[in-house]
Design a protein around this nucleic acid. Structure first.
Lengths: 239, 239
DNA sequence: TAGTGGTCTAGACCACCAT
DNA sequence: TGGTGGTCTAGACCACTAA
């Protein structure tokens, strides 16, 4: 514990516990030792220790039972579903993603886009159409709309990284998003773009993302080749 | 505030705030008043008030900014994705779900099922195959596997309600689940069952659910008619 | 400068669980 | 019965934001 660090004590403790769990120093199913004893040993107060433990319970790494103690969860919890960028996900999976910007223009919002971004129909918005590749093969066709005032994006930046990273870098703090995931058959044009025959199953995703003031900051409709992509997530049950 | 109630004070306060937000008594974007003043007014301590506020921040209903205050979020936050039962979801949407149990038997685990349930290959498990209907139309084909010792399920119960509700009722506390959502074309048999032509796009879902000791308690592979079903969820960005 | 949330402490009592 | 987590209090100091 480093009291001179700007990192909060509860966070330091949570990190230490998390790495101990990851490295197997705290075996799955083992008890953590009670909070008061732990607090005394570390020279912290009990609420601080509780805060650290609670953050790991929220992550699904620990389970607390009254009268029993705090246990390390057995299963291989990864992380609950996050609002993640396809680019970052692919990069993290070592897939070396690539992007081809098909279109990047200002245009008037259609009814659908206007409703999603909560602007009047016909308002100018930015439209971005991209193809995402892995290993030189097309993987997804991404069509996104942003409020016009939001970002002066460069085409090169869009080819080099993901949209969310650019938005974060521009000071937009994402807060929540509403997603719909479905499937449908590819049209001839879509098949052409993605290298699939007409009628091939595609995974579809529509997403509206909001910043922390509740303003919509992005609307996207995405198409993924079902033969090469699936959504994978970890869910936690809220107690 | 009812101090004689078994409901914790922070929870009572959180509920009051939540209903006030839902009913518009606390307008989106409005400030909540600072924690200390609020604590004094309600006769509570500041940590208790903070705990109440924090729980609503975790739900995405409030945003806190240092130096500014606590604000009600604008957007229509519903709820983050939960480990939910298709039956309950349909019922909540007023769709009057129905279930036809196609098969309910004990059988030896295949390699895939054994790996998912973390039992040796060939171990006896319970297999349940169901068709789920809405308005008399088939909607999904559900194939689930449970550890043999878990539940003595009746066929009637399976037709009357969802699997998760039955498991909860039998004392199983679900903790987390790992899901994969994808898409593929229907085979002739699948199309027959679901009332779709061969080759029609289907939404696929595989899920393994764990209880709070980390033991796998359910593995399922589900097929949904893409023309009639999509997954819809709300995500929150973890700060 | 004044006000906000972020963090931390040192206690206290209670409900639940195993033995 | 003894030990655990669940809840609650009454303070304290700090970092950040706005005016």
């Amino acid at each position: 514990m480093d009291r001179s660090s700007p990192v909060p004590l509860y966070f330091q403790l949570a990190q230490q516990l998390e790495t101990a769990i990851e490295r197997g120093k705290l075996a799955p199913g083992s008890l953590l030792g009670n909070e008061i004893e732990l607090a005394g040993r570390l020279g912290l107060s009990r609420p601080t220790v509780r805060q650290a433990i609670q953050s790991l319970v929220d992550k699904g790494l620990l389970v607390r039972r009254r009268g029993i103690g705090t246990q390390v969860v057995h299963s291989q919890v990864k992380r609950p579903l996050e609002l993640s960028s396809l680019y970052d996900d692919l990069e993290a999976a070592g897939q070396r993603p690539g992007t081809q910007v098909l279109r990047y223009a200002a245009e008037e919002a259609t009814a659908q886009v206007a409703a999603a971004l909560a602007v009047p129909e016909g308002t100018e918005v930015r439209a971005v159409e991209r193809l995402r590749f892995t290993h030189g093969e097309p993987m997804a066709y991404l069509c996104n709309y942003l409020p016009a005032e939001l970002l002066p994006l460069g085409r090169e930046e869009l080819e080099a990284t993901g949209l969310y990273r650019l938005m974060r870098g521009a000071g937009v703090t994402l807060h929540s998003a509403r997603q719909t995931v479905g499937a449908r058959a590819a049209t001839a044009e879509e098949g052409e773009l993605l290298g699939e025959p007409e009628g091939a199953p595609l995974l579809t995703m529509q997403r509206t993302a909001f910043d922390d003031t509740g303003r919509p900051v992005e609307y996207g409709t995405h198409l993924y080749r079902a033969s090469r992509y699936a959504f994978d997530f970890q869910l936690l049950v809220r107690p």
